[in-house]
C-alpha cells in the first residue's frame, strides 16, 4: 500500500474517531458500573432496542463463555429492556433516543464507549441475536482463547455469521424467553458462501446463506455481509468502520491467512429468524433506521408471514463447532 493510501486511511480513522466522540455525547449514562471493571475483564458491547425476550439467554450464554462485564446502549426501548438490564449485577447501560441510522447504525456510539472502557481489554462486540462459537468452545472459555491469542501476538479474531433457521416458516417458529434459541433454529446452509477481499480495508467480504438464497435471489450482490470481527484486543485509536465487519487500522482485518493456510476462526450463530422478527421487521420498516434504506427488512416483510421457509432438503442440522470446522466454515488453525 502506498504512502498516500495509508495517509488517507489514517485521516479516515481520525474522522471516525472524532465522529464517535461527537456522537458519544448523545449517550446518557443510565446505570454505570464501569468502576468495577478489573484489568483482565473481557467486556461485551452491544446496542439494543426492544430486545427484552432475548436478553436473559444472551446474558447467560456469554457469562458462561467468560464475559464478565456488559456494556449496553439502549436506543429508546419501551418494552422493559432497560429495567431488565439494570437489575443485572454486571451490566452498565447508556441510553439515547437519537437516530440509530445517523450514528452509523450504532457504530459511532460503540466506538465511543469502546474507546472509553474497552482500551486494554479483550472486547466482544456482537448483537443480541449472535452467539459466538470458537474452536474448543465446548470445553474452553474465552479466557483460554484470549490468552492463546495474546501469546501469539494476535489482536483480532474473525468469525462468519451463520444464519440459523428452523424447518418451519419464520412466523411459526416461536421463541420462549430464557431458552436457547438454537434449540429452535437447528439448521443452516453449509456450503454456499462466496467471498471477496475488500481492497480498501483489506477485510474479506462474505456473502451467501439462506438470506441470499431466498430474500436476495434477484440481487445477490446486495445480500448482507457475513464476515465479522467480534473479538478484538482493543486499543485507543481503533475504530469499527461498518458494523463489526471491519476496523481501522486495517491490519486488524487480516484475520485470514494469505498463503494457503488457515488461521483460527469461529462462527456467530445468528438466531434472527424467530417469530419475533415479523413484528420487528414491520416496525423497523416503519422507522427506516436500518442499513441501505432498510432493504433487508423490506425483503423480510415481503416474504415473512407468507409461509416462506428457509429450510431446504440440503440444510444441515447443527451439532457443534467440530462439525462447523469439518464443513470448512471455521477452523482451529494451529490451536490444538
Amino acid at each position: 500500500m502506498g504512502v498516500f493510501r495509508s495517509y488517507q486511511l489514517r485521516m479516515e480513522r481520525r474522522r471516525r474517531r472524532l465522529r464517535a466522540f461527537r456522537k458519544g455525547r448523545e449517550l446518557r449514562p443510565h446505570t454505570d458500573r464501569t468502576a468495577k471493571i478489573k484489568p483482565r475483564d473481557i467486556i461485551l458491547f452491544t446496542v439494543v432496542r426492544n430486545e427484552k425476550p432475548r436478553l436473559s439467554y444472551f446474558l447467560k450464554y456469554y457469562r458462561k463463555l467468560g464475559v464478565s462485564k456488559f456494556i449496553f446502549v439502549d436506543n429508546d426501548s419501551d418494552d422493559g429492556t432497560r429495567e431488565y438490564l439494570e437489575a443485572q449485577p454486571d451490566t452498565s447501560i447508556w441510553v439515547t433516543d437519537a437516530s440509530y441510522k445517523r450514528a452509523h447504525f450504532g457504530v459511532d456510539w460503540l466506538n465511543d464507549l469502546l474507546r472509553r472502557y474497552g482500551s486494554g481489554h479483550w472486547v466482544v462486540v456482537v448483537d443480541v441475536d449472535e452467539f459466538f462459537v470458537f474452536p474448543h468452545s465446548d470445553t474452553r472459555n474465552l479466557r483460554a482463547l484470549t490468552d492463546w491469542l495474546d501469546a501469539s501476538s494476535v489482536k483480532s479474531f474473525g468469525a462468519m455469521l451463520l444464519d440459523m433457521y428452523s424447518q418451519r416458516p419464520v412466523e411459526k417458529t416461536p421463541y420462549r424467553s430464557g431458552t436457547d434459541p438454537i434449540n429452535k433454529l437447528e439448521y443452516f446452509d453449509p456450503g454456499n458462501y462466496t467471498m471477496k477481499r475488500n481492497k480498501k480495508y483489506g477485510n474479506l467480504w462474505v456473502q451467501g446463506g439462506p438470506r441470499q438464497r431466498i430474500f436476495f435471489e434477484d440481487m445477490p450482490e446486495k445480500a448482507p455481509a457475513l464476515n465479522k470481527i467480534p473479538l478484538v484486543k482493543w486499543q485507543k485509536g481503533y475504530v469499527y468502520v461498518s458494523s463489526t465487519h471491519n476496523l481501522l487500522p486495517r491490519g486488524l482485518n487480516l484475520v485470514y491467512d494469505e498463503w494457503g493456510g488457515e488461521k483460527a476462526s469461529g462462527c456467530l450463530l445468528h438466531a434472527k429468524f424467530l417469530d419475533i422478527l415479523r413484528n420487528k421487521a414491520l416496525e423497523e420498516l416503519d422507522r427506516k433506521q436500518h442499513y441501505a434504506a432498510s432493504r433487508e427488512y423490506e425483503a423480510y416483510s415481503k416474504k415473512i408471514g407468507t409461509g416462506t421457509r428457509l429450510w431446504s432438503e440440503t440444510s444441515v442440522k447443527y451439532e457443534g463447532w467440530r462439525q462447523l470446522e469439518e464443513l470448512g466454515l471455521m477452523s482451529s488453525g494451529n490451536w490444538i
Binding site: G158, A159, M160, Y193, M195, R197, L204, V206, N227, K228, V255, Y256, D257, E258, W259, G260, G261, E262, K263, A264, S265, G328, L329, M330, S331, S332, G333, N334, W335, I336
Partner: peptide, 28 residues
C-alpha cells in the same frame, strides 16, 4: 494432533475458503 495443527495452519484445506483462509493471488 500436533501434525494436524501444523498441516491446517500451514497447508490449509485446498478447495475451501473460510474467514480464516483466503490465499492471495500470488499463492493460488
Amino acid at each position: 494432533l500436533f501434525e494436524e495443527a501444523r498441516a491446517r495452519r500451514c497447508g490449509g484445506r485446498k478447495g475451501r475458503l473460510t474467514v480464516g483462509r483466503f490465499p492471495a493471488a500470488a499463492h493460488e
